[in-house]
Amino acid sequence: MTIQEKEQEIVEEFAVFDDWMDKYAYLIELGTALPPLDEQYKTDENLIKGCQSRVWFHAELKEGRLWFSADSDAIITKGIAALLIRVFSGEKPQDIAAADLKFIEEIGLSQHLSPTRSNGLLSMVKQIKLYAIALTAGS
């Protein structure tokens, strides 16, 4: 599945909720289900700056594709991280670097996109892209 197809899938999943509470309940569920990040990866280097909660993103390159894992002490943030992992994990660095994310707005979480928001969604996307760009440049 391409990044766009995965985004589309998420948009369809969220479309069944017409209540914001249900959307957040689902995000919380996704956050709870995300496997915890190995303690060794909870380093300062992997810590995303600009978040009120602590969020770590770890990236690994395997056979030309990037695999992400993440953790956060805030559950909604972790749910958002889970969505980002789902969209980006297993993709080629150049596809990740070029991706123009649409799903966040479409599932009605765009209030998390403003740069003044301290939940760090923008910082997370930026960090993912930085990993991808660094690896694209290196390959």
Partner: peptide, 13 residues
């Protein structure tokens, strides 16, 4: 043990 950010985000809604 709920993170304050989660509390704030949900209260905002």
């Amino acid at each position: 043990k709920i993170h304050p950010l989660d509390v704030g985000t949900l209260l905002d809604r």
